[in-house]
Amino acid sequence: MSLLRRIPLPILLLSPTLIFLTLFFVIPLVQVSGLAFQSPDSVFTLSNFDRMVSDIYFDGALRNTIILLILIIPVQLVLAFAAALIVNQRRRGSTFFLYIYAIPLGISDLAAGLIWLSIFTERGYLNSILHNLGILERPLIFLSSMTPKWMVAAIVLTEVWRATPLVMVILLSGLQMIAKDYTEAAETFGCTWWQKVRYVILPLLKPSIQSALIMRTMLAFQMFGPILVLAGRQLPVFASESYYWYTTVRNPRVAAAYALMLMALSVVATFLYLLLLRTKDEQVGVM
């Protein structure tokens, strides 16, 4: 007890997090770097990165990883913001809406992929419905390398459906922290609803938007289940290539190189968000 007392309180409070991060993040990170930068006989090498970059799937994986991000994140942000605004009105039934909206949060990404696969396959629900309505004569094949746009659309839809609630929950908690005084003051000055959202709520919500964006972007980089189910290797991304090199090719070194690429992308994205969405001092501690 006396020993514990001598440690400053902040460090004591931080220590569980620090221990956790060291065990499950820092140490694996060092190990992964070791794998990626070493040959099997433990000599420093860049050959694993060479192998990765010269692989025929690399260019596609880089492109797809970024395209999916650019398509998914803005859509999710807008939808989540709209939903958070609705729930925050606290009208009758808004709690019910919140629960319904949050259901996909409880579903694993692989299961979400399977649900949408049953919709989009050649004999899936979408084709059946369109066929029964007489819109289609024969089923369309959505998920094939000949229709990459449909494949991307299916993945974006799955991911938006699955992960928007996460963004919404973060934004909602941010909205609830904004003191009523601000919006009431805006109303007193005759602001329209749109002006209120644009000039009062959005700026005050910036810290929440920032953390939601950082979290969502990192998770989107790691997105994997839906892609594997809906597109297989026809739409490679960094995360699925890393998995493929580890499990199928059984080359953990190239897999580690892909994992480091993912981390580098995540770090760059986080840095950009911190820079672009910098929060001014007066916006912190709004209560």
């Binding site: 050649e122 998920l143 390398s145 597109a231």
Partner: peptide, 18 residues
């Protein structure tokens, strides 16, 4: 068939007459 890229086993596509 262009969906070949996602098929793991051919028994289902054969049964569904894809």
């Amino acid at each position: 068939h262009p969906s070949s890229g996602i098929w793991a086993a051919m028994s289902d596509p054969l049964l569904f007459e894809e």
